[in-house]
Amino acid sequence: MTSENTTIDNAVTVRNVHKNYGDVQALENMSLDFPRGQLTSLLGPSGCGKTTLLKIIAGLLPATSGEIMVNGTPVSGPGPDRAFVFQDFALLPWADVMRNVAFGLELRGVAKSEREAVAEKYIANVGLAGFERSFPHELSGGMRQRVGLARALSVDSQVLLMDEPFSAVDEQTRRKFQEDLLALVKNENKTFIFVTHSIEEAVYVSDQIAILLPRPSRVSEIIKPSGFRHKSADGIRRDPEYLDIVDNIWASLRSYVE
């Protein structure tokens, strides 16, 4: 281990990662650090490889070359140290909320009574107490994603990977989610990696924003908003630094949007 002291406060490090699909280069020489206990956003126009990078970190896709380390251990597939929140929720339609939330633990072979006790706690945490026996089709889009979030939280991984988790829910639910996410980052001692295509969302929730640009995909800039993190949920959206960062990011992304 040569990088003992650089990995010490980074939960996840990405070093020189390349990813090719046949002749198409999806990621070129990507390197990025994800500080422990913080939320890092991957932001960029479509085709910039942000979801690809997230899935490589998750171990769902193999990298063509390069190295991913989670807590100092190289990634070779999905692991108990990472949990995933899916854009389309990926809930089992034949299973009720309880079984869906406990499904991650079920796959790990945790006994039924034990996993349901854990699931019950997280169902209550995400505000779905009383819906344990409901089926996904009986829930609204926002509630479905709360189920997806509870499932990811109940396996108690240190790293939470979120792939555009709020893009399929309506605007008002989305705002509420963003506020809840800030509280989650503060209260749970976890590292969050968050893919989004919304500039406002990225600036609002992130401790660190990685701007990804396409053709070839690369990290163009890393922004660390610092001035408004301590402010209240409402205060942030009116903070001048928040507004400036949003404007700057748009200025740099504008030319890449078709």
Partner: peptide, 11 residues
């Protein structure tokens, strides 16, 4: 995405 979910949660 359901298969991916099963994979991601270590099935």
């Amino acid at each position: 995405s359901l298969k991916e979910m099963g994979h991601a949660f270590l099935g």
